[in-house]
Every structure is written in structure tokens, then in C-alpha cells.
Design a protein around this nucleic acid. Structure first.
Ligand code: ZN
Ligand code: ZN
Ligand code: ZN
Ligand code: ZN
Lengths: 156, 156
DNA sequence: CCAGATGATGATACAATGTCTCAGTATCGT
DNA sequence: ACGATACTGAGACATTGTATCATCATCTGG
């Protein structure tokens, strides 16, 4: 197997996401490529407004950033996460699963919580409430941030 | 036991919440009484902005509504819930538990998900991530809304 | 390859949701 | 009753997100 640099991995991942958009009948545009590349380069949680700040100087309009994020979420390439006040997103190509968010550095890792999922399903079935969706998120500190505890990071 | 009307129950509940504020060293004001009464009368999910719309005409300023909601949350009398785009709150006098939100009528019921809680704890312990908090919410239809399915309600 | 159909963008106005300031007011312990 | 101080109101301000619409780019079929 060929070992890829982090950068080329990001480039190919961005390409994959753009390809997915094409498969959905959406067009490839220069602006979407810029937004998608910025997103995969982040490798963590981000907010729409943060992207705007970053990409507006590079010629991508606010509305385009919001529209692109919305489209990516609809297609399933982004998952929404609930920060304390605003909303964030994270890259998420897989199916249903949940996320661990590091509150210091903003890194997000997916977690397959199958046991929790089973318990949730059982609970939902037992209630007279018809449970359509559930929201489960975790927040804490990633391994790296546990190590260098006390230093400040750049979570969005 | 004396059977109370829904209204008197709400009144006493509001009184109890105000008493809790007093116990925390916070002052009793006319505006806070109005806000708290409006909240308990709702008996479901609500948003700060919704309260503003309702109480501004009654002489409670926007800032006061927001400040009161914030104070109530800090004291633990309100829990924040994550609606799709904005944030909401619900009355929550008890300790740690989670909530079922009816997406049609906005009613919220607390649920003690101890099995889920155990599974969550186990998962958290197994990860090298240091999980500080978790967020678990359910959304769906309450029993009443399942019955009269198809009709529109007034969730915030 | 070209032209048209349609999707996407940008500039900006608008809307919704909070946050902050500060002078004036109400509350509460003494 | 008094004084310390918590609280309020009014409105400016900030942030986050949406709508409009003329213009432009992309894809597709011929
Ligand atoms: Zn994911
Ligand atoms: Zn799940
Ligand atoms: Zn509760
Ligand atoms: Zn829990």
C-alpha cells in the first residue's frame, strides 16, 4: 500500500467529496472546491461562520459558504454537532454513528456506540412516546490535549 | 390529599421556582415572577425569543427575559434542549436525566434512561478520550399527537 | 464544439437571536 | 429607614443565518 502524506490524503478526500456531489447531480464549481478543501483541511469541528471568515477573503461569498455546507449536510457528507451556543459541523462520510468532540482543540472522532444504540432502541420501544430520532454527542478532551493539559487550543 | 387544579399547580410550581432562586441568594422581582409564571404555564419546550414576544408587551424587557432564562438554567431549573436550528429550554427541577421532545406540540417529558446511562458510562470509560459530558435527547411524537396524527400543533 | 437550459454565485438587504452598556430603580439585610 | 447592590429598561450593537435577483458557469444534447 502506498503511504500518503497528510496533504495528499486531504486532497483526495476533497476529490471524493466533490465526486459524491457530482453523483447527486450537483455541479462542480470552483467555489465548492475551495469550501470542501478548507473543510477537509480542518480535520475537526468547524462552524459556517468560521468558514466565511476564512474564505470570504479568498473570494467565496457568505451565501455560497452557507449553501455549500447545507448541501454537504443534505448529501450526508457533513454531520451537525451542537456546540454550546452555535452549531458546528464535521466531516462524516459514514452512516449513523456519534461523535466525540474535544472541547480544547476541536478535533472530532466518530464512535460506534452499538451498545448504547441497543439500549437507546430498547428504551424507545418501551415508551409510549414514538421516538423518531435521537441525538447523542460526547464532549471532553482528546488524548493529546489531556497530555498538554492547561494549554489553550483553537476549538471553533 | 388535596386535588389541585392545573392552574393552581402551576402557580405553586412557579412559587417554588422563585423560592429556589431566593435560596441561591437571588432577588425576587416582579419581572422574574412574570417570566417564571409564563414558563411554567407553557409546560413544554420554549425559546427565549418566544418568551420575549409574549412578555415584551407585558412590560418585561428583552434583556431581562434573557437574563432570567440564563439564571434559571444556571440554578438548574431549566435544561437546554437542542432544536433543529435554534435552542430551547424546558423546566427541569430534577437531577441528571434526559428529555423526550414532541416535535408537533412541543411537550417535553423527562426520561430516566438508566440503562442507556450505564452503556454510555461504559463506552466513555473504554475510550482514551476523556469524556466530560454527554448530550442525549429524543424527539418524536407524544401519545396525544400520535392519536390526532396529521393535525398541526404549535411547537416553538 | 456550441448553445441553451438550468444550476450556482455574489452583493446586499433583511431577519432572527443574542449580548452589552449604563443610568436609574427595586430589593433586602441590618 | 437606609445603604449596598442586584436588577431592570432602552436601545445600540454583534453574530448568525436567509432571501432576492441579476449575472455567470456548468453540463448536456445535438
Ligand atoms: Zn462522523
Ligand atoms: Zn445513535
Ligand atoms: Zn427535565
Ligand atoms: Zn445522561
Amino acid at each position: 500500500m502506498v503511504r500518503k502524506t497528510a496533504h495528499s490524503a486531504n486532497v483526495s478526500r476533497a476529490g471524493w467529496m466533490l465526486q459524491r456531489l457530482a453523483e447527486e447531480g450537483l455541479r462542480h464549481t470552483e467555489q465548492r472546491a475551495i469550501v470542501v478543501q478548507a473543510i477537509v483541511d480542518k480535520r475537526g469541528a468547524f462552524t459556517a461562520e468560521g468558514l466565511v471568515d476564512e474564505l470570504q477573503p479568498r473570494g467565496v461569498a457568505r451565501a455560497t459558504v452557507y449553501r455549500t455546507v447545507e448541501v454537504l449536510e443534505r448529501v450526508g457528507l457533513l454531520a451537525r454537532i451542537h456546540l454550546d451556543n452555535r452549531h458546528g459541523y464535521t466531516v462524516c462520510e459514514e452512516g449513523h454513528h456519534h461523535h466525540l468532540l474535544c472541547e480544547r482543540c476541536g478535533v472530532v472522532i466518530p464512535v460506534d456506540a452499538s451498545d448504547v444504540e441497543v439500549a437507546i432502541r430498547r428504551l424507545a420501544d418501551a415508551l409510549r412516546f414514538q421516538v423518531d430520532t435521537h441525538l447523542l454527542e460526547f464532549a471532553g478532551l482528546c488524548e493529546a490535549c489531556q497530555a498538554r493539559n492547561g494549554r489553550t487550543g483553537s476549538a471553533p
